[in-house]
Every structure is written in structure tokens, then in C-alpha cells.
């Protein structure tokens, strides 16, 4: 017992918090990558997350494609969708005020969600985890851990770290960071910056879709699963500051844990705790925990 709460319940909620935190981290990572180079806040990120989950569901239903294959195929498909959107429409807005990018992607989010609601209704659809991850749960001695949840945490950590390495440690990442600082100069050095922008958006969208596939067995697959999540992720991004990739990742997990803890000790406040933390951070440290003053 800790503060009158059974250890089992506490750890269970912390585990759920860590799961939520995994999705916050993956999504805020994608937002930060896109924002870093394109200066666009991708409001459609939640809708693309939902699109990932639905694509996995539909692939399984109509083509019999299983979870593991979907994990690779879905990000590619949805990422391609993002590339097409960027090439045909979003790229026209770069020269304008940044607010237009936000408004455009908001419209995109409404369109995607509206379409799925029209065809599939608002209720959630089940998507089962692959057999290898279903049973039995792992007994860690102090708590019982369902296998799929453990997998989500491990997978999201791997993806987050891989993205960090890609951006901070590779040649391609160096181009990306250089183009963030000064696109004109990088273009003068012969790097195809418009292509880099397209690929970056595609990559960010693919990350959202991957998170969607990971989330499909945990949450119910529904057209609205992304829209409420994305507002929380915005708050995460404000707390972390979008200047740093690592900042986005760490903040995502930390706020997920904070939310889990609140569910144990003061459940009424559990769905506003992240916003409260955001407000406090803004008052004490307006640039965000990891952000540079901009």
C-alpha cells in the first residue's frame, strides 16, 4: 500500500499511463519533425493516426493481411497519402502565414473524420492483437503485464529512438537539420529541399499511422479516436517545446505517467491534468521545458 492505494492498482495505472505516454510520444515526435522543417502544425495528425488504425482494420478484413505485415504496409500507404497531400496542396501554403497551414490541415482532419464517420458510424470496432502477443500475460512478480501492452511500450521506445538517431546522427538527418536552419543555403549546396519537405511530411504522417496500428488492439478503432487525442498532444508539444526531438519524446512519456498517477489519486482531474501542467509550465517557463526561446 502506498498512500492508501494498493500497489497493484498503482502499478496498473502507471502501466496504462505509460501506454498513453507511448502514443503521446510517437505523435508529438511526428508533429515536431513536421513542424521543424515545414513550419506547419499538422492538425490532421490525429486523423492520420485514425487512418492508420482503420487501414490496418480494413486490410485484415478484406485482404486478410495480418498485424505484422500491416505494421510495415500501413505506414507506407498512409505516408504515401501524406506525400500526395503535401505535393498537391500543402506545398502551396509554405510562403504564406503559418496559420494557413494549420487551417488547411484542420480542414483535412474534418474531411477525413467526416468521411469515416459517414461510412463506419461513430462506434468503435475491435481489432485483435496477433496471437503471439495475446496470452498468457507475463507475471512480473509484483504485477501481471498483458503481453501486447508490453510490446506497445517496447515498440514505441524503439521507434522513438530510431527516429532520434535518424535525425541527430545520420547524413540525411544532418541535411534535414540544416534545411530547418536555412533552406535557401542548403538548396544552394545542391540539396533538393522541396523533395526533403515532401519526404519529411510523408515520414511524419507515416509515424502517426504506425502509432495508429499499434493503438488499434489497445483502443477501439473509431473515426473519432484521433481528434480528442490530438488536442492533448498539442498540449504535450507546448510543454516540451518543439525545438528538440528528445524533448518531445521525454515529455510524451512523462505526461502519460502524470496522467496515470492522477487517475489513481484524483480521478476527476485525470483528463485535465495535462492541460493544467501545460498552464503551469507556460507561467513558469514560457518556452517549454526543452524549447529554445523563439
Amino acid at each position: 500500500m502506498i498512500f492508501g492505494v494498493p500497489l497493484q492498482a498503482l502499478l496498473g495505472q502507471l502501466m496504462l499511463g505509460l501506454i498513453n505516454g507511448s502514443f503521446y510520444a510517437l505523435l508529438s515526435l511526428g508533429l515536431a519533425v513536421i513542424f521543424g522543417l515545414l513550419r506547419v502544425i499538422n492538425f490532421a495528425h490525429g486523423a492520420q493516426f485514425m487512418l492508420g488504425a482503420f487501414t490496418a482494420l480494413l486490410l485484415a478484413k478484406h485482404l486478410g493481411i495480418g498485424y505484422w505485415f500491416a505494421l510495415v504496409l500501413v505506414p507506407l500507404l498512409v505516408g504515401l497519402f501524406g506525400v500526395i497531400i503535401e505535393r498537391t496542396m500543402l506545398s502551396r501554403l509554405y510562403k504564406l502565414d503559418h496559420l494557413y497551414g494549420l487551417l488547411f490541415t484542420f480542414g483535412l482532419a474534418l474531411t477525413i473524420e467526416g468521411t469515416f464517420r459517414y461510412f463506419f458510424g461513430s462506434s468503435g470496432l475491435p481489432y485483435s492483437a496477433p496471437a503471439a502477443l495475446q496470452s498468457p500475460p507475463v507475471n512480473l512478480g509484483f504485477m501481471v503485464l498483458p503481453r501486447y501492452r508490453a510490446w506497445v511500450i517496447v515498440a514505441s521506445l524503439i521507434v522513438c529512438l530510431a527516429t532520434w538517431v535518424l535525425i541527430e546522427k545520420t547524413k540525411l538527418g544532418a541535411y534535414l537539420r540544416a534545411a530547418t536552419e536555412n533552406p535557401t543555403l542548403v538548396q544552394a549546396f545542391g540539396v533538393n529541399v522541396p523533395l526533403l519537405l515532401t519526404l519529411t511530411y510523408g515520414f511524419g504522417v507515416a509515424l502517426a499511422a504506425l502509432a495508429g496500428v499499434l493503438a488499434a488492439p489497445v483502443y477501439q478503432v473509431s473515426p473519432l479516436m484521433g481528434s480528442n487525442l490530438i488536442i492533448v498532444v498539442f498540449a504535450v508539444v507546448v510543454v516540451g517545446g518543439m525545438g528538440s526531438i528528445m524533448g518531445a519524446i521525454v515529455t510524451g512519456y512523462a505526461l502519460g505517467l502524470a496522467e496515470g498517477l492522477t487517475k489513481v489519486f484524483y480521478p476527476e482531474a485525470s483528463n485535465i491534468v495535462i492541460f493544467v501542467i501545460m498552464a503551469i509550465v507556460l507561467i513558469l517557463r514560457p518556452a517549454g521545458l526543452f524549447g529554445k526561446e523563439a
Binding site: 487551417l103 488547411f104 484542420f106 480542414g107 474534418l110 474531411t111 459517414y118
Partner: peptide, 12 residues
């Protein structure tokens, strides 16, 4: 919602 979204995108 769909109409709203499309109008949004076209307007922008």
C-alpha cells in the same frame, strides 16, 4: 463535417 472540411481546404 465533410462539407465543412472541404470548404476549409478550398478557402485556404
Amino acid at each position: 463535417t465533410i462539407i465543412m472540411g472541404v470548404v476549409f481546404m478550398v478557402c485556404v
